[in-house]
Amino acid sequence: MAATPSDLVRERSGLSRRVLLTGLGLGLGVAAVGLAPGAPKASAATLKDGRWATPAQGRFPAGGHFGAPRDGGPHAGQDITNSTGTGVYAAAAGTVVRRAWGGGFPGRTGNALVIAHGNDQYTYYGHLSAYRVELDAEVSAGQRIADMGATGNVTGPHLHFEVHSGGLGRVTDPVAFMADRGVDLDGGWPRIDPGAGGATVAVIQHLMTQHGHALPADGKYDSAAVDAVKRFQEAEGLEADGQVGPATWPKLVYALKQDAKGDHVKALQTALNKRSAGLAIDGEFGSGTTKAVRAYQDLNRLVVDGEAGPVTWRALVS
Results as ranks from 00 to 15, higher is better:
128 L>I: 10
303 V>G: 07
203 V>G: 08
175 V>L: 15
78 Q>Y: 14
25 G>D: 12
305 D>Q: 11
247 A>P: 00
75 H>E: 04
272 L>T: 09
314 R>G: 09
172 T>H: 13
197 G>L: 06
203 V>Q: 03
96 V>P: 00
102 G>Q: 06
163 V>C: 12
51 R>Y: 12
6 S>D: 13
273 N>T: 11
170 R>E: 11
55 P>R: 08
136 D>W: 12
217 A>L: 08
136 D>N: 15
290 T>S: 15
291 K>Q: 14
310 P>I: 09
302 L>D: 03
35 L>D: 08
273 N>H: 12
137 A>W: 01
71 D>E: 15
297 Q>V: 12
34 G>E: 13
58 G>N: 04
140 S>H: 08
144 R>C: 09
212 G>P: 05
14 G>D: 10
20 L>D: 03
153 N>W: 15
224 A>Q: 14
303 V>F: 09
107 G>H: 02
149 G>W: 03
215 L>D: 02
206 H>E: 06
225 A>F: 03
26 L>M: 13
205 Q>T: 09
67 G>H: 05
137 A>M: 02
268 L>W: 03
212 G>R: 11
37 P>C: 11
170 R>M: 10
298 D>K: 15
138 E>W: 10
268 L>P: 00
174 P>W: 08
182 G>P: 01
158 H>G: 01
60 F>Q: 14
60 F>M: 10
144 R>F: 06
304 V>P: 00
224 A>E: 10
225 A>M: 12
199 A>R: 14
